[in-house]
Design a protein around this nucleic acid. Structure first.
Lengths: 238, 238
DNA sequence: TGCCTAATTTGATATGGATCAAAAAGCGCG
DNA sequence: CGCGCTTTTTGATCCATATCAAATTAGGCA
């Protein structure tokens, strides 16, 4: 069982390509578990007991106001990891993690991770890299929410998917989550998201069929996303 | 010179209490410099050459849309450090760092930091801690912007200042930056910020004199800030 | 000390996006 | 393959906050 868990760990970028010994030791302190749609993995305000790796399925990290308005901070897929920040600062969870489809997770206990961190320099470097990445990405998310209009956020979301897929050929991307989740993540209502998609279709930038989006005018979409051209700002488009 | 620089480094939480040797080696790869109000330390899109420690003065980290709208992501004071994320992910700066008052900075070269990271386990741990902290705080900022109304954001801003000062006695806090900078950081126009401050004054929660704010009704202010009580959620109020 | 410019406040108006209500489309499942 | 629940779309209205314009106040410095 540990054997296979060690292999599962490498799904996450953070643990990929670490030494077999390190992986084994981490796997020993890891527990696999399954959550069904709607199950809460941890809740805002709870103590952080460890970090998680998504083996399969989708989850959301979200916050809810006292009035009951929910905002999806992050949408997670296979290979993502989460829960590190609260773990390492030894503070309470700021977000609630909920399964949005059935999903399998690995939980790595706080102690296991901290101990291993002292053993393995490379793991420390990896963790530093992961945290920096997340910070960088979150800054970029912040930028989206604050500086772009709703249309821009939607356009950018679609555009990013196109790049992530590495599909230089295909101009079709799949929306990886239910639309209302994406809407919340983009800080807008489902209604507004729907209308925005319709508007982008009407001006001929995209075509939508269910959860599939065909990009008709890549350049114009990039424009709508407010992204600078490669020449201006090579990497930052992310 | 290096001697004094090593001492200056300890201003930053991230370097505080490290071994003298580590500090000396870091100081060797560090350069002090002075910026006048309005000077740009680094610009969005630029390559990250190292990280910075604020020895004195104030700076802002901001982003600007193509239309020229600026948003202040972060306001920095003595003892803060910045520039780590882009440095460690080896990507381009997402934000522009600008001096808002005359300020003294220490710049630690990329190579120096990376090399020292391999030497000193404790530094690695510290860096992990700092990054996690920043991530945690940024999540909290995100929450402010997304979940709170303008009044709530202002109330929370004032409330945080009160706690940071550790002033259990005094109910007076100083706004540490120009109001228009704070407004932008809270994602609102200067006009709206001004009106909000006036509204909070009118309902008797605070009193404003220039850059000074007296808090009249602490509990009601906390309420307006949308913060949960200690019993409900101890640490997360931050 | 008083001038000049930058910062803040006040007032009037405009708007992006939210909200509420209801119809239409998907979809799991017996 | 059709029933019932969930998700998405469409339509009508409303509100928080932005924008524009102008008056007032504060600060740096000659």
């Amino acid at each position: 069982m540990d054997q296979s868990q060690a292999r599962l760990l490498t799904k996450a970028a953070i643990f990929d390509q670490l030494s077999a010994q390190t992986l084994d030791r981490l796997a020993e302190g890891a527990t696999g578990s399954v959550f069904r749609r709607g199950n809460v993995v941890f809740a805002r305000g709870g103590t952080a007991t460890g970090m998680y790796v998504v083996v399969s399925g989708n989850l959301k990290l979200s916050q809810v106001t006292r009035e009951g308005v929910e905002h999806v901070m992050e949408l997670l897929q296979e290979g993502d990891s989460f829960g590190e920040a609260a773990l390492l600062t030894n503070r309470l969870h700021l977000v609630t993690a909920t399964a949005v489809t059935e999903c399998k997770l690995l939980h790595i206990r706080r102690q296991t991770l901290l101990a291993e961190l002292d053993h393995d320099q490379e793991l420390a470097r990896r963790l530093i890299g992961t945290l920096s990445d997340r910070l960088y990405r979150q800054t970029s998310d912040m930028e989206n929410v604050l500086l772009l209009t709703a249309t821009g956020r939607v356009a950018r979301f679609i555009f990013r998917r196109l790049k992530d897929n590495g599909s230089k050929i295909s101009r079709r991307v799949a929306l990886p989550f239910r639309k209302c989740l994406i809407a919340s993540h983009l800080n807008m209502t489902p209604e507004h998201f729907s209308r925005t998609l319709r508007d982008l279709t009407m001006i001929g930038l995209i075509k939508v069929q269910g959860g599939m989006v065909d990009i008709i005018e890549v350049d114009k979409l990039r424009d709508a996303a407010g992204l600078m051209r490669a020449a201006e700002f090579a990497h930052a488009a992310e």
